[in-house]
Amino acid sequence: MIAPTLTTDRLTLRALGPQDAEAFAAFYADDRSSFVGGPMNAEQSWRTLAGEIGHWTLNGFGRWAVTETGSDTCIGCVGLWAPLGWPEPEIGWDLFEGATGKGYATEAAEAARSYAYETLGWDTAISLVAIGNDASARVATRLGCTPEGTFTHARLGTLTIYRHPKVGG
């Protein structure tokens, strides 16, 4: 399955593709990615990108490339994420260098959440935030989430579970 395109006031969320390999490599080369499984080399980040795309086929949903409408440059990766072993489907957001501080994560995550609730029929969702990732925790709070315990992942360590408000909530 290929990701449908979503639009918000400022952003276009489109399917990830080969054109995003460089943006992924740059993000995952940086220490900023340490909260989401990085840093990693370009070979590993290429496989991560391929895995993001394959997630759509395996689950029928996944994450999008976030672009500023009018530009095709991938400035982040936001969407719905549930690899095998995940506690339950989550809404995740990674904003790349230079794209933070503008409310883009919140705006893109809201679009992804609306897609999950309205198109996929989810009635709840979580987001997992690594301990110490304060910027991400603030996004969760802005989205109306409340913390409810932790989940420990073999690779990513201990993550705080944030619960999203229910549909219409």
Binding site: P18, R47, L49, A50, G54, T57, P83, A154, R155
Partner: peptide, 19 residues
């Protein structure tokens, strides 16, 4: 491990899209 295995499988599929 289980996570790496699933991610590799997803990457096998994404490889078709990229290449």
């Amino acid at each position: 491990n289980d996570y790496e295995s699933w991610m590799l499988y997803a990457a096998e599929i994404g490889h078709w899209e990229i290449r």
